[in-house]
Structure formats: C-alpha cells, structure tokens
C-alpha cells in the first residue's frame, strides 16, 4: 500500500517557481496496479521519482510499508566507460548485501536476459538505446521489490525484447504491484487495474482503466496550458 497525502512539488529556475503538482492525495492498495496517465510534462516521471524516494517533495508525505523499486527503464547511475557487467556488479553490490553468490546470480540473470553476447563486456557508452534498455530492464527485474515503478520500458527495443519483457512483467505481477507510465496505452491494459490521470497539477482517479484512457485521449486533443488550477 502507498498512501500519499498533500504532495506538492515545484522547481526553482532562475528565481522563478513553477509548480508541477499541488496537494496530491491518493492511495494505492496492495494487490492493485495503476496506470499513471497524463500528457508530456504533466509530472508523471517526477511523481514516480518522488514515490521511488530519489527526489524530495516540497511538502506532503508518502507512507508505505512495502519495498519500492527505482523507476524501471530509466538509464540512471550507469558509468559509460564501464561495461554492463561492471555496472550490474555495482548495483548488485548495493542491494545484495555483499554476498558474492547472490551478486554472481544477479549478473548471470541480467546477462541472460540482455542477450548481448560479447558486448556485455564492452563499455556501456558504446551501446545502442535498445541494448541499453535491455540491460537496465534486466537489472531492475533481477531484484525483487513489492512495488515496481515502471517508466516507458519498452519504447526502445525490438519485438523480441518487448515480448520477453512483457512475459517477465506478467510473472512479476503475480507477487508485485506496478505503477506504470507508458504512452503506448495498449500496453497498459495488460497490467493495470486502475488509472490516475495527472492533469494541470491535479490528480483524477478512475476505477476503470478504459474510462481513464478515454478522458486522457480527449484532453490530449487540446493544447497544454501549463497552468495549475
């Protein structure tokens, strides 16, 4: 369960404050997965980052008794001059309690999923965006979290990668919940029960995903006004 109360976030740029969202209140129960909808720049990724604890809100609280993943799909914390193997080792060392066997096992898991062959030992900066998403997605799936934050996983990747990542997500879904952002709305239907629509700094909750997507599409027809109401 995640309970969000009075969540407000703004950025300062050259002394001017722009609010991303204001006083968000919502609750995600254990056992339900939600889709996070909203136009570009509505604050979906910001909200995911705050839920993941890697950004701090101005005000408000997030209560949870579950382990929450980092936003899956974002290439963060990867050192370009190191190989995928070394980068994966680094993250495994953080999370796998210094246990050599577990670390080895995580590396093998990512190596098998990414299917990069010899490129697994080449510098990360030489990878194509598809190769990068295979490694980062595989890495996120190597660890068990109660709640996964998923930000546009399959946008870069071929058909095979999409299919395999969907299979893995389906398997993870048996024990874990998702908070998903994906502009490929069709993909959301596989995993999500509910929708949260971020619009003009407010959140609109839908108990039915289809209905949320319908409203979301309707709002997209008009241009953004970037005003917080």
């Amino acid at each position: 369960m995640i309970e969000v109360k009075g969540l407000t976030k703004s950025y300062l740029h050259k002394g001017k404050k722009s609010t991303v969202f204001k006083d968000l209140n919502f609750k995600i129960n254990t056992g339900e997965s939600v889709a996070l909808l909203g136009r570009n720049g509505a604050g979906k990724s910001t909200l995911l980052q705050i839920l993941g604890g890697i950004d701090q809100p101005d005000r408000g609280s997030i209560k949870t008794n579950k382990s929450i993943s980092w936003p899956v799909g974002l290439v963060g914390g990867f050192q370009g001059s190191l190989s995928a193997r070394e980068n994966v080792t680094f993250v495994s060392k953080i999370y796998a309690s210094n246990n050599k066997e577990i670390i080895e096992q995580k590396i093998r898991y990512v190596e098998e999923f990414a299917e990069l062959g010899k490129y697994f030992d080449r510098p990360f900066k030489t990878y194509s965006s598809g190769m990068r998403s295979r490694v980062t997605f595989g890495l996120s799936m190597a660890f068990d979290f109660d709640i996964y934050l998923i930000d546009e996983v399959t946008s870069a990747g071929d058909e095979r990668f999409r299919k395999r990542s969907r299979q893995i997500l389906e398997k993870k879904h048996e024990n874990s919940d998702f908070v998903m952002v994906d502009h490929n709305l069709w993909g959301l239907k596989f995993h999500c029960d509910r929708a949260l629509l971020l619009h003009n700094g407010r959140i609109i909750e839908f108990d039915n995903l289809e209905e949320g997507i319908k409203i979301h599409k309707k709002l997209l027809e008009k241009p953004a006004n970037h005003e917080i109401v």
Binding site: Q79, S81, L82, E86, T89, F90, I94, A96, S97, P123
Partner: peptide, 22 residues
C-alpha cells in the same frame, strides 16, 4: 550500517573500475 557498508564498497569498486578503465 550494513547498508552503508554495502553502498561504500560498491562505490569503491565503481571508482577503481572507472579509473582503471580510463
């Protein structure tokens, strides 16, 4: 403390590997 030890050992690993790779 255990978490911090893991993080620091991971960072030292990363730092050394990065330097060696450069």
């Amino acid at each position: 403390f255990i978490i911090q030890r893991n993080v620091i050992s991971a960072l030292v690993y990363r730092e050394l590997k990065t330097r060696v790779s450069q």
